[in-house]
Nucleic acid binder design. Sequence first.
DNA 1: AATCAAGTTCCAAATAATGGAACAAGTCAT
DNA 2: ATGACTTGTTCCATTATTTGGAACTTGATT
Lengths: 271, 271
Amino acid sequence: MTNDMMVADEGRGEAGTGTLGKAIAVLEAVVTADGPQRFTDILARSGQPRGTLHRLLSHLVEEGLLIQRRDLSYEPGLRLLTLAYRSWSANRFRDVAEPHLQRLHELTGETVHLGILRETEIVYVDKVESRQTVRMSSQIGKASPAYCTGIGKAALSLLAQPVLKHVLARTAFHPFTSHTHRSAATLLAEVEEIRRDGHAFDCEEHEAEIRCVAAPIAIPGSELAAGISVTGPAYRVSMEQLVAWAAPVREAARAIAEEAAIRLGPGRGGP
Amino acid sequence: MTNDMMVADEGRGEAGTGTLGKAIAVLEAVVTADGPQRFTDILARSGQPRGTLHRLLSHLVEEGLLIQRRDLSYEPGLRLLTLAYRSWSANRFRDVAEPHLQRLHELTGETVHLGILRETEIVYVDKVESRQTVRMSSQIGKASPAYCTGIGKAALSLLAQPVLKHVLARTAFHPFTSHTHRSAATLLAEVEEIRRDGHAFDCEEHEAEIRCVAAPIAIPGSELAAGISVTGPAYRVSMEQLVAWAAPVREAARAIAEEAAIRLGPGRGGP
DNA sequence: AATCAAGTTCCAAATAATGGAACAAGTCAT
DNA sequence: ATGACTTGTTCCATTATTTGGAACTTGATT
């Protein structure tokens, strides 16, 4: 047992939580793969011994978290979708934020996102878009690196210095575009600015030709850092435009935080 | 040990999965509750002993499947949403079906659903709607009883008689409206008709003032039964209209099944 | 100060997980 | 066909994890 340093390891699929951790790691291995996975594929991916893996997979199938096809390969099961649906539709924070996102969309005409920081990533929890294709909602649940997205950097600015350092230590600075931060050093400086200004920009750091302006929201009652953003294509949204939108974005974030504080309650005499 | 629950099962029972089963049961207890759950709430809901439950909860929190708020209550975590996002967006069957759903929507102007049977429920996997509110996509992942929905009954008609019997034995016939089936007997007769006709109707059996026509799809490569439907409000969609739409719905289902057989077929499913 | 409720920790005993190895069941190239 | 391989499944003695009752905090209430 290696539970002494349980703070240290959790980022990827390795077990920190005994049996459950292994099972979820295997589940994730199947879910993140692109296509049905045969037993041997998962064996290689997960590093578990044959016997163990076989039992783990049967259990996951029995629970409806995986489905076994006729050719014996494994696919994600429907139970995951149902569990996620329930937790999404019961998410009170998203519920509070939604009208504010809508308003921001009407003001700007561009796409508005709500995201929450989880480890080193931003998970998108809601989205309001102009031309709504069926695809659009697919974004919900998507995770992007925090260090190169507007909401991500905004959310990072809420963290206490030691926590922030810890997150950055676990971040892999992948150079998505020529504007992407290459190291913690430059990012730390920017986060300091963001903390002062109350808003963050993303100038094609994650995707070329995509810009956004974001503001942080501390979710009352939990330790979570969240944020909202207005995003648009570079050809349509100038930097001047983004700067002009910063104030309304900050104001929406403030309003959400305030309303959430009332509706989700402070819980107890917390900080 | 309190093994009362796991005794009665034959083939497709639950809680036979040792530790994982218990963990997921606890997770589900939190996720299906409406609001943050305190330790004692979950203790009552889950029936686990204090010590066990406490460890289970810590593990779930450590895995990101639950979040513990400052007031110590538990909420669904973001990991669930991310896992579901990945499995949804990589679902090849949905991908194949989508253009057909779109076409059906253009033809009818009404809402089109894609659902898959899981145990006794239909899980909605995709939806094409006319007036798209942000809400709409919330339906994805939602589960409704099979016995009183169009897609549900259509999917049931694909099952072999003994399997069907087994599913119905586990179904609770809740009387949602005055049109809802009250017992397996009448339902069995209707499923027989559906098998003959190739399509199913839902005349306000689940929700008052809501009607639909559906057709079954057997997903190639797996044992799954699925279906598509066109749904509309009773005031706008007459029974005659539904009958007229039955043929195109059947045709779309057939086309999806055919294309899926090629693209997900017995051969490799890889990229 | 005493009582009660909610949450956490402890630890010997029980049980479920472990994983190496043997065993089937296909595939493919002689 | 035959034998060499690859892939998936089962077995089972060993081991480590889970189990769960009870004791222990913590904090609010009377």
